[in-house]
Design a protein around this nucleic acid. Structure first.
Lengths: 204, 204
DNA sequence: CGTATGCTCAAACGATCGTTTGAATCGTGC
DNA sequence: GCACGATTCAAACGATCGTTTGAGCATACG
């Protein structure tokens, strides 16, 4: 059902590319199926409609991304109480790894677009399926920053979310020559993001 | 040519509303002219094309917004060297006042969408017409934060820009009952944004 | 009064959209 | 080899898109 060269997967790959480049409305099913090298009717056959295809593009990436975040968070509390930087790392590192993995960077663009579009249907979909992740991290932040009122904390989390979404939507357009400099650059980038987020969350 | 009840202005107002709600592609000229209460052909008559209308929506707001920013910045250096918070205020306050002025809030949504869309045509338009503003503010930040390398500074400015764009695209959806609480709330909001931005820019 | 100019209007243009259809083709188990 | 479900295909559907057209209306100037 999900073989890497299957019609279904080629459609999802082309959808990620074209949704990132031209948006959900701007990318037509004819461009999309031509890019994927499949018949026009294949989208409605395999996914039912264009809107269901959009949901599947999100589900495929976000299932893994948020599972990685929860796993990283669960692994923290084992020995000592987690620090703010550690919790931020658990949130950011999975997204950053996705951003540097082939088509994953394209998906971060798609995600940033969806954020900016304020689409109620998609927001409800994200909230219902992945809301528990943000709730868990918010609880951790509240524990680590007890001096902040709840509105104040929500303000800062919202600002950090906006900064990270904006930043990661610009990644992955350049390919590095070897894995060493690639991995070094990723660690450096993550330090930027984590220190920025920590400063924005915890400033007096 | 720009009378407040003119066909031209009614089109611009409806365009701001529908572009914010449904995006540039999603808002059709038929919905748009119906909302404005004008004939379908009026858009092409007054603006030439839909794309020119989009540019005019940006131009109308950004001319005033960036002029206010430059004026606020110029007014700073008169007596003593400006502080980081003052420079940030010069950048943020005009945008925040626009966000709380009727349809201005809708425009901030349009602006956030345009940022997320990574459209090259629009980016070039913004860079050519308003690039000098960002360059001026960047120079001020570089002066106030000499300990940061240039790449480091650009990183932080990009993150702050993302946070502010994301935050302000969510404003103005609620109307307050009186001008007093309205203005108090705006000042409080601006303090949030400025302190967050200052912390993100200047952390060690 | 006549007419030129700026603007509005209903109607239509060709293009493109998402979706549906029914026949053709493929792959498997009997 | 044959039947049957799964998949692919070319073709067409009605709807909607941005744009153009040419007639109609207004207002101001000689």
């Amino acid at each position: 059902m999900n073989a890497p060269g299957s019609t279904r997967d080629r459609i999802l790959g082309a959808a990620e590319l074209l949704f990132a480049q031209r948006g959900f409305d701007g990318a037509s099913l004819r461009q999309l199926t031509a890019t994927a090298g499949v018949n026009l009717a294949a989208v409605n056959y395999h996914f039912g409609s264009k809107e269901k295809l959009v949901e599947e593009v999100f589900r495929r990436r976000l299932d893994a991304l948020n599972a990685n975040r929860m796993a990283a968070l669960a692994q923290l509390g084992s020995e000592h109480p987690a620090t703010l930087e550690e919790v931020l790392t658990a949130y950011i590192r999975p997204a950053l790894e996705l951003s540097h993995d082939g088509n994953g960077a394209l998906f971060m663009r798609v995600l940033a677009r969806a954020f900016a579009e304020h689409d109620d249907t998609l927001r409800r979909f994200l909230s219902e399926n992945y809301g528990h992740v943000m709730r868990q991290f918010t609880a951790e932040f509240a524990r680590l920053l007890p001096q902040l009122s709840k509105p104040e904390l929500y303000w800062r989390i919202d600002l950090v979310t906006g900064a990270l979404t904006h930043a990661m939507s610009g990644f992955g357009m350049i390919q590095r020559k070897d894995d060493v400099s690639e991995q070094a650059h990723r660690e450096q980038t993550m330090q930027h993001l984590i220190r920025f987020a920590a400063a924005g969350l915890s400033h007096p």
